[in-house]
Amino acid sequence: MTTIISVPSSLDDQTFEQIFDQLAPLPPDEKILVDARRTRWASPFGLTGLLALAQTRLERPTFAVPELDETTSYWARAQFFKHAEGFYDILGRPPRPRAASGSSVLLEVTPVAHTQDVHTVVENIQQRAQAILQEKLHLESSVTMRFTMALSEVCQNVIEHAGCGGWVAVQAYRWQQRAPGRAVVQIAVCDSGMGFRKSMESEHGPRLTDRWDDGMALEETVIRGATRFRDPGRGQGLAGVRKFIGKWEGKFSVRSGTARIAVIPVWDEDVPLQENLPHFPGAQVQLTIPEKYR
């Protein structure tokens, strides 16, 4: 039997919860068809999340491509299908990818599994990031290096903690519904590895407290800078990301296991900590940098 997983028409970190919800009750060896035919748009979180999803399945899943040419064309430019073909049986014919130059794709969907992948990401994004961050988001020139530093750190998080490879993508776009017309850049890094709680437990074991769960593990690591390593120098990466996000009024969220934590700027109405979400392995990180109001 094949279970159909419906992909929302607009796929971002919030609507992806509908997919997690459909997946959570299924055993990992159950055959699934991820149906994106009605999907019109996906954020970097959506694209990288779909790849991480496929990695959790023991039975190779099927993926039904969006019907809208504009959507498939964009996903192809973002290199989604190139990677999806390795994990999904593709239903439908994705277009051949065209060059991403001049588009809002800052960084195509890129695997992150080894140290050299982080170098590749950093080398590839700098020039494009500078143009987008300064021209579209009207940020100061000094933001480019900080942005790339933050990107580097969230990618390294996968290599050091996931126990398997993950995916990164970066895209600039204009919000349609929330603060309409405001330009943003989003970084998404998704993996289906061990997640924050298990990473902490791998060194220290479970905490001897009534409440040691995914939510607490996220609070400890993302907010308080704890890590599984005893080296006092560890934990600076995410601390640096928080600092960067604070300075540029961005948003930073991490979902892991059954919890999601967010560092929320004044322009957003998200909740700081959500618990008892449908379980999904690994960690899914998103950074949003908004256009500076002039």
Partner: peptide, 15 residues
């Protein structure tokens, strides 16, 4: 040097 991230600064400078 183009970019120096926090992790690398820790390894090179601090250590």
């Amino acid at each position: 040097v183009g970019l120096l991230d926090y992790s690398c600064a820790d390894e090179i400078v601090a250590k």
